[in-house]
Design a protein around this nucleic acid. Structure first.
Lengths: 125, 125
DNA sequence: TGAATATATCCGTCTATGCGGATATATTAG
DNA sequence: CTAATATATCCGCATAGACGGATATATTCA
């Protein structure tokens, strides 16, 4: 019961709900979330740690980046709660706005990477 | 999103989860919950008020008693969250124990009422 | 009206937690 | 090794909320 309370406590903060809403769309690193949510890095990291402790997200280091994603399936309250979010979160205005910002951010990022790739390592200059 | 956070915040406390678990089995008054949970009346009332503000329970006065029950169906996050609890709470040890205490309490109460009815108003003496 | 009962709210106290700047750590490139 | 970058954690401050005894309110009965 205590663990159940911990799961809900992790979801009882608007910022963490926004993060969950974004992670529903896929894996993201801390700096993506900072950019989309326009929040300081310490705030984003702290909320992610909270979600990780509750078992709702898992992290995966990839070089300098730390990628976060929703905790994998399984069963029980935790998994069903994530499904609940998947069904219900997208309808909320805040989640829609965040989703738009997410897509804009990701495409800008992809374009920047493409530019960098064209110039190549060392670059044209 | 804020409202969603409020729903989860209401469920983020172990005592309130225990109350929700008991109300899943039916309507109860404050004094029933006090007896089953062995908590002071002010604590029980406070938690019930919190759940009511989150829209998770509704109250209904019946004479001196205030009966609480789970908020009626409807749709959306709130209703689906209650369904989530219905599916997952009963499996938890604490909820089982509380359920046993609930049944014991209700049958003792029914028996006391029967006794009172036999003696009738005014009583045998 | 007055007593009894059930409930709601008030109060002071204590802990949990949100915030964001500052600092520490980890990884990569040179 | 050093610099740069991304992230985690620390810190002090402020607020939310849990607790339970005390008090206020509402209802019923005589």
């Amino acid at each position: 019961m205590n663990q159940a309370a911990q799961i809900f406590k992790a979801l009882s903060d608007e910022t963490r709900l926004r993060i969950m809403g974004l992670l529903l769309e896929g894996e993201l690193c801390v700096c993506d979330l900072m950019a989309i949510l326009e929040l300081p890095q310490s705030t984003v990291s702290r909320h992610l740690a909270y979600l990780r402790n509750a078992g709702l997200v898992s992290d995966r280091r990839q070089g300098v980046w730390m990628n976060y994603r929703l905790a994998a399936g399984g069963s029980g309250l935790r998994a069903e709660t994530i499904e609940l979010l998947r069904k219900n979160l997208a309808a909320l205005p805040q989640a829609r706005t965040d989703g738009q910002r997410l897509r804009r951010h990701l495409s800008a990022k992809a374009q920047a990477e493409r530019r960098a790739a064209c110039q190549g390592p060392g670059g044209l200059r």
